[in-house]
Amino acid sequence: MSGLAIDDAAWSSAWRRRSPADKLVLCLGLVVCALALPAWPGSGLVALTATVLALGPARVPPRTFGRAVRWPLAFIGVGALTAVVQVGGGGLGWAPDAAARAGSLTAHAVAGSTAVLLLATTTPVSDLLPALRRLGVPAAVVEVASVVYRLLFVLLDSLRTIREAQTARMGHSSVRRSYRSSGALAAAVLVRSWDRARRLQEGLAGRGMDTGLRVLPEVLPSSRAFLAATLVGLGAIVTAGTVLA
């Protein structure tokens, strides 16, 4: 357990061994549908498809998926309400088509968020980084990103433990103390990160690090059946989304 529920889900998902490219086509396709199709029924279809695929064949734990949607929902709720409140002459009021606009905005955003979540809960970030390389992102940048991915777990672990140790010694027993402790915590984690980088450098130099952090690419072959089903499914959503709208 790494402590990041979405990451844990991605590594143990039934779709973990599927080609990241296949999953990208599916999820980005769903995102585009969520954005481009009219909210009803397009967004509903996208959200439904992404959720059913995640909880069904990809076997993402429902609890993880549900919790992960909560954060975007809070933003979407506040954002959508603000968007449809009208600043009138004398004060605030509802825009004329408030309910419809808020509904449509929320539907698009929920659909888009679940589609991205389908990707996030089935594909570890480290599988997606090689795809960036193929999209033309320089190798050095992808390598930096892969080090970020590895080190953030090491640092998150330090962060949690130091915080627990501070809490045990009453470091978070008032707002004032909590701020002081958080400053010390952030500084300690930053110093750890420098130290880690230095020590990793020596560790890797011993293994012949010369130019970069090249590793053997993992072979996750693309599935024709999966791609075909993706195209048919996306086609169906687009058709239903435009015809029924």
């Binding site: 390598e143 990103a145 080090v147 970020v148 080190l151 953030l152 640092l155 420098w194 980088a197 990793l200």
Partner: peptide, 9 residues
Amino acid sequence: TLLLGAAGA
């Protein structure tokens, strides 16, 4: 690479 990765993390 490692220092920048550490900074990002």
